[in-house]
Design a protein around this nucleic acid. Structure first.
Lengths: 126, 126
DNA sequence: CGGTATCCATAAGGATACTG
DNA sequence: CAGTATCCTTATGGATACCG
């Protein structure tokens, strides 16, 4: 009985960057943080923002981000229930390096695609 | 017969940041790019720099980075063979946003660990 | 509305042995 | 020296159905 739901582990990572990448290096985290950058959003609003994420993955990723202190989850016990997600100061502090990364990706995405095409062409010369 | 060795896929990602994360969001890519930042290194030198990476993973990750244009691989056909890995201009251009991310990770790693500890404590109040 | 439970497919990571 | 091949384990992502 270890009380670690959903297979989430708490392994202490000695290397900070690896630990951070484990958190934000996945498919969805960055998209969620971007979506929350302008301000608080509710669960279904996030679904609509990110569009092709499933409830399952949104729920899981939000929980990780909350656990690691990037966002807060506030439940308003109304009927129907309302839940709001907001960036913490830690989450907001991450926005700057993140947006640099996003900017780099936007600028250089074409180069990467081009490199891949070149590489593939070379491979196909038998 | 698709000629995609090792299960590597070439899927066109519509979203630049996702595409970039697929490449550098894994366990090893960033460590390799950091190791190559000061200059050219050989295969076994990289092994020693990164220390706990296996030959298998180093080989695979280097190939991806080469394919996507971050590094070049130069084979000197001597005996024994010598292979040198160097950052391309694209790879070097990535260094700045990457080092911002690393700096953020170093600065805020403690906050993340603290947030996790707090979260876990809350969960354990049954 | 905002999730969780279940089950499944694929991808990532790795140990070990072998090779040009 | 610098890898590749093989085999295996675990992690990640997702579809679907159900719940408070």
């Amino acid at each position: 009985m270890t009380m670690v739901p959903d297979g989430e582990e708490m392994l202490e990572q000695p290397c900070p960057i690896r630990d951070v990448l484990d958190r934000i290096g996945n498919q969805w985290s960055l998209l969620i943080l971007e979506a929350l950058a302008p301000g608080t959003l509710r669960f279904n609003a996030l679904m609509r923002e990110i569009d092709d994420i499933s409830k399952q993955m949104l729920s899981r990723t939000l929980k990780q981000l909350e656990r690691d202190g990037f966002i807060t989850r506030t439940l308003y016990p109304e009927v129907p229930p309302r839940v709001e997600y907001t960036l913490t100061p830690l989450g907001r502090s991450f926005l700057e390096p993140m947006q640099q990364l996003v900017a780099w990706a936007d600028t250089h995405h074409g180069d990467i695609v081009a490199a891949r095409t070149r590489y593939q062409a070379l491979q196909e010369q038998t």
